[in-house]
Structures are given as C-alpha cells and as structure tokens.
Design a binder for these strands. Structure first.
Lengths: 187, 187
DNA sequence: TTTGAACTGTGATTTATGTCACTATAAATT
DNA sequence: AATTTATAGTGACATAAATCACAGTTCAAA
C-alpha cells in the first residue's frame, strides 16, 4: 500500500519509489493530542503541515476573545499560517487540534531544498496553491451572495462528515453566524 | 522615465533594459471604453490583464440579477478570472470597465513561454500569487470579524481614492451590504 | 439644452441575526 | 461512578440590516 502522502502527491505529479522516498526524507512526523497547539499566535511559522490523521482548526482570536474560524483541516489537507510563512511575520492566528492528530511537516528550508533538487515538486505546490486561492475566492463569493442557511447547506454538502467531527459552534463561527442562529437554521 | 510595468515588476525582481523589452514583447496593449467588457460570463479566460490606466470591477451575477463585487482593480493591478484561467473552465464572473481603460494583457501561452525563457519571472508571479492569496484570506477574516461599518472604514483607509472613482452602490456590494445600509453608515 | 438614466439619501416597515438567560444533554476528567 | 466542563437547543428581546417607496441630484446621451 502506498504512503498516503504519496497518493496525495501523485494526484498531481507521478513519482518513482526512490523519488517519493527522497520527498519524504524532507519531512518530519509528529503526533499531537487533542487541544494541543500546532501554531500559536505571535509565533513565526516556517513549517507547512500535512495531516495524516485527525482534525484541526485555524482561527483568529479578536479583541473580545471571540474566535473566528478560518479553516478546518483534516486527513490529507495541508495547513499552516500562510501569511506568516510567506511574509516572515508573527502569526496572527492559532491552529490547534480538535482530535488527536498525526502530522507530517516540512520546513521552508527543506521545501526550498526539495524543489531545487526536484523541480517537479514546484509544479505540485504551484497547483495546490492555485486551487487554494480559488477556494478562498469562492468562499468570499459565498459570504457575499449566500444566506447563512445556504452557506451551511453548501458546507454540509461539500463536507458531509464535518458536523460529526466538529462542534456546531465552531461551524457557526466558520460560517460567520452565532451558534444560536446556526442552531435555529438546522433543518 | 521607466515603463510603469517595468517599475511594477522591479518592485520584486530587477530587470536589465533588454530583459524588460523581452518581457514586454509578450504582452499586447488594448484600450477599452467605460462599460465595455474585459471578461464575460461563460467565456474561457486565458489572459491576464494589467491595468495601465483606468478602473474595473469583477463581479458575479446571481440568479436574481444582483451583482456581487469580487474586486475592484485600477492602475498597476492585475486582473483576470483566476478560476477560469487556472482550471480552463467557463468563467462564472464578468469584468468590465468603470472608466476608459488602457490595458496590457498576456496570454497563458505567452506567460508560459516567458517564464520558460526567463526563469526569474516565475519568482515574480509566484510572489504576486502569494500576496494575492494572503489578501483573500484577510478579506474573509474581515467579513467574519468586522461589522459593515468597520469593513467600510478599513476599505477607505486602504484605498482612500476609491469612493471618488467608484459608485457607492458598488462599494456596498463589495462590502456585502445593501446600498441603503452603506448610505446610512456614512459618518 | 433637454431628456432620460444612474446614483444617492432617507423614511417606514419587515426580516434576519445577535445577545442574554436558562435548561438539558453529552463528553471528558477525576 | 461522580463531578465537572463543553455542547446544544430555545425563548425573549434588542439590534442590525434588507426591502420598498419615493425624492433630489448628478451625469451622460440625444
């Protein structure tokens, strides 16, 4: 059975056995328990995480201590604070585990090394990045044109398992409504 | 005086005279009048536009004929339908001119040719793309955590000239509120 | 210069959503 | 098993925003 990361990468570019081993050698593996942080506000983020198993949230904490969910990520998703990673600024967000997690991560130095020695990985990341950007665009559009109910239905359609794994109050926050409103939306 | 596109590119990478000429040779120039389309819904978009002069809106038209502004773009901004451009799917959005415009555009083939022959342009586009993604992320965050009034103030802070150039009803649409609400927000 | 269209503001009303308070249940911890 | 903590639903009420209607103004086209 192929390594799940290999399957993931091979959705975009194909890899020989030794190529994948080379790729994997640039990653480290780590386990985190539920409620543990992956990224904390203020930290300089220089890693990208790939989730083998588990579920995390990335969120912004505002002045009133209210948390605003930017994303959920689970098996086979990438997650990091992209802004801190790219701009080398302290992170404005937190990422923490909603379940026990197994993660792979790659540092930006290792990523640079890897792409330098294996050019086709650049194609992989470029494509990931493009599709990531497109989904952000579509989320903005959805926030503009869809009602809270519609956004909720679309989310459940796209990620049917989400409501079993993630507390509804967090889903409410992701949708931009209060937990009470989400509760009354439930059809 | 340097070509404005050259100045723009040189904010990220430096170019010799002949290098910039080579870059520019991959672009075409076009003039459009106010109200003319740059991209129409349904079209397969394979160009990226760079605005020399003028101002445009990109927007989605919903089932009720209501328009939802995704972005404004003016002098020295890039604009295209990124989703259609990347995925080779028919565009879901329109882009049209709010003023008479002068534009440069590059086709995806020319862009590929250019980056193949001049690798550092890839760095330029990669950086643009990263920063574009970061601002989308921040707009989502703003839609989640800021009130309409706050979003309006932040927008005017970031683009003070915008309200002189763009009808307020379009700004309202960009912010995700009705024109009446925006009118009453005005302080 | 006139005519019509687009834009803007504002009142009246309706609808959607937020907030607060309380209860019930489920899940985690000791 | 007992106890605490997190989660979820719901009523009552307050607030924000949408919608509808209309009037005044600006702007562009004939």
């Amino acid at each position: 059975m192929k390594h799940p990361l290999r399957q993931h990468i091979e959705e975009i570019i194909s890899l020989k056995d030794e190529e994948f081993d080379f790729v994997l050698s640039h990653f480290e593996q780590v386990k985190k328990r539920k409620h543990q942080y992956i990224v904390q506000e203020g930290e300089f983020v220089n890693k990208e995480y790939w989730i083998i198993k588990g579920c995390v949230k990335s969120y912004f904490l505002d002045e009133n201590g209210k948390e605003h969910i930017l994303r959920f990520a689970m098996e086979h998703y990438w997650i990091t604070d992209y802004e801190s990673f790219v701009k080398h600024t302290p992170s404005k967000i937190c990422i923490d585990c909603l379940e026990d997690c197994e993660l792979l991560y790659i540092s930006s130095e290792n990523r640079d090394k890897l792409t330098a020695e294996m050019h086709k990985m650049e194609r992989f990341w470029a494509k990931k990045s493009k599709f990531g950007r497109i989904s952000l665009q579509n989320r903005i559009l959805s926030l503009l044109k869809n009602s809270a109910k519609e956004r909720y239905d679309l989310l459940l359609e796209q990620y049917p398992k989400l409501s079993q794994r993630v507390p509804k109050k967090l889903i409410a926050s992701y949708l931009g409504v209060s937990r009470e409103t989400l509760s009354r939306l439930d059809s």
